[in-house]
Nucleic acid binder design. Structure first.
Lengths: 327, 327
DNA sequence: GTGAAAGCGCTAACAG
DNA sequence: CTGTTAGCGCTTTCAC
């Protein structure tokens, strides 16, 4: 930076200012600085900058896994939005493990990030303590309806379950089953299940739950459907914890010559890549993973601009019931 | 760190050493330092560390998009492997745009990362120049068979096309079509196509190519299949640029009552979540996205440990033809 | 095995 | 709008 300043015939602080707030530097100085940067192939050092400023232009995002299309979408949307403000994404995978999250938060703090984004509202006590001690803004995504550390951007998963139950009721279904996978890990799937069960119970209907120990997958969906028919042959409506399970169920129905939706109505969650295109097209509930990412990024950017007002803000991104031919 | 040193009654440099090479510090000192760290809730500052050491424990990973399951897998595998060495992942999305990649590389360099991981072998001249000037190790993933900047971990996409053609020949198919989407962007899909066409031509078979301008999706797959039947009704074997396209084709076949594989053999690429579970199970070629991530991480870790030997190393992670019932 | 000294490259008041 | 000044918190020789 000193070299650039020398070549541009200004002081280093003017170069620094130019890099951070170009509009505050005179056009003449700007031009010669730009030339010098180009000429010298100057690459700024973010670590020196971050050290001096006691905070970096990095945002730490911690999700269970980016293999999960939901989080991939959110991470992608967020990175695109943050990129415009020249903010970098530091990614961490918690694998649904609070201890892992704790460790990742510790490392995240070492970068003095502009913000830390966590998935969900349940975190270990240590995580909460670590975060309470810092002034780094925290944003929790993909879940609403519990105690927040900072701002939260997401939706109520129990409401998803309620919407699913109401939808199936409207279709005249009364023998309902919830198909789930590994719900002890995926708390949000559990919440959808709970909302579904509670809503049905309020209408005098007892929901059966058929669960699998393996992580959600298309194959698990097929297995669960077979299991469902074996245990509860009367079933006329199923809500699947996500669209992978639902697709597997549809495939199994096809193989077993079960008419969907005539004999069995199927509703999923996620609106994944195949959901609109399969046979029959899958009725599902679409969570706005993109919107969650965009809104979270917006909060971070506003915060950076000085808007410290939205500390424990809650943004409900809602969800949409997509009624297609599987119900 | 000074506070920790004071409390532990050692010098700051001993604390620093303890944090970086615990085995080089005496057990007695280690113990009191550990106690002091715990007691004071000391959080190291990576930026100060990076500034002083002129390099950070961050790895910059640039992929087209993490929404793409292939790259999500690799990123996930890599982050898991790097995490064990306390290396952080800085993520960037190029969206298949070399200008974007260039800009992301520039920002990546500002972190003085332990390595930069790029997707594919084609990069802008500026990107190459930027990278040539630094001593940051570069690893290119998901493609082999072109000029490398640094090490490369991946496989030959044209060989995938060849394997697909050979497979279809073995099934007695001679009227072959390649179904692709947006191949001007996805160079690697184009390479698979080229390999397929070249192999067929060598056997005296002319392959037709049916392409769509939109990005690959299940719906595009259905559209492409219909288009294929309209333009080339004799077709008895198709190779799809990926499993989303293939799944869409299977769905369309089902709707049109086209017997798969009897009338039409289908082979895809990717072995995605649904590929083994659909009707019929999809014959596909599995690229080892996980392995690519693991091997890339291994290179980075070895490099960090001083193994500078593997500069322009090439690691072929191969691929597997999974013969299932769609062919 | 441990400590003293000298920065790493930049930012942030503040004064002009 | 620009320059001066004083560090930010750590690593790294090099002695001891």
């Amino acid at each position: 930076m000193t070299d650039v300043a020398q070549l541009a015939d200004v002081s280093p602080s003017t170069v620094s200012l130019y890099l951070r707030k170009p509009e505050a530097v005179s056009p003449a100085a700007s031009q010669s600085i730009a030339y010098a940067i180009e000429k010298l192939n100057y690459v700024p050092n973010f670590m020196a900058g971050g050290l001096a400023a006691a905070s970096s232009r990095a945002v730490s995002i911690l999700v269970p896994s980016v293999r999960n299309a939901f989080f991939a979408e959110t991470v992608s949307a967020m990175q695109a939005a943050l990129r415009k403000e020249r903010l970098q994404v530091i990614l961490g995978h918690t694998e649904y493990d609070e201890r892992e999250e704790e460790d990742l938060v510790r490392m995240a703090l070492s970068w003095a990030p502009a913000a830390i984004v966590l998935t969900g509202l349940s975190h270990s006590a240590v995580t909460r303590r670590l975060l309470a001690r810092t002034s780094v803004p925290v944003i929790e995504i993909w879940e609403l309806g519990g105690p927040q550390i900072g701002a939260a951007v997401g939706f109520h998963h129990d409401q998803v379950g309620i919407a699913a139950a109401e939808h199936l009721f409207k279709q005249g279904r009364r023998n309902l089953v919830f198909l789930g996978a590994r719900m002890h890990e995926d708390r949000r799937a559990k919440m959808r299940c709970d909302g579904f069960v509670a809503c049905a119970r309020a209408a005098g209907v007892e929901v059966e739950i058929v669960e699998h120990a393996a992580p959600a997958s298309v194959e698990v969906g097929s297995t669960l459907l077979q299991e469902t028919l074996r245990l509860h042959p009367q079933t006329d409506g199923i809500f699947c914890s996500n669209d992978h399970i639902a697709l597997g169920a549809l495939f199994a129905c096809e193989r077993l010559h079960i008419a969907v939706p005539k004999q069995l109505a199927v509703i999923g969650f996620g609106d994944l890549s195949f959901s609109a295109a399969c046979n029959p097209p899958l009725t599902t509930i679409r969570p706005s993973g993109d919107l969650i990412g965009c809104e979270a990024a917006r909060l971070i950017i506003e915060n950076l601009a000085g808007n410290r007002s939205q500390d424990k803000l809650t943004i409900d991104t809602r969800f949409t019931v997509l009624h297609r031919r599987s119900s």
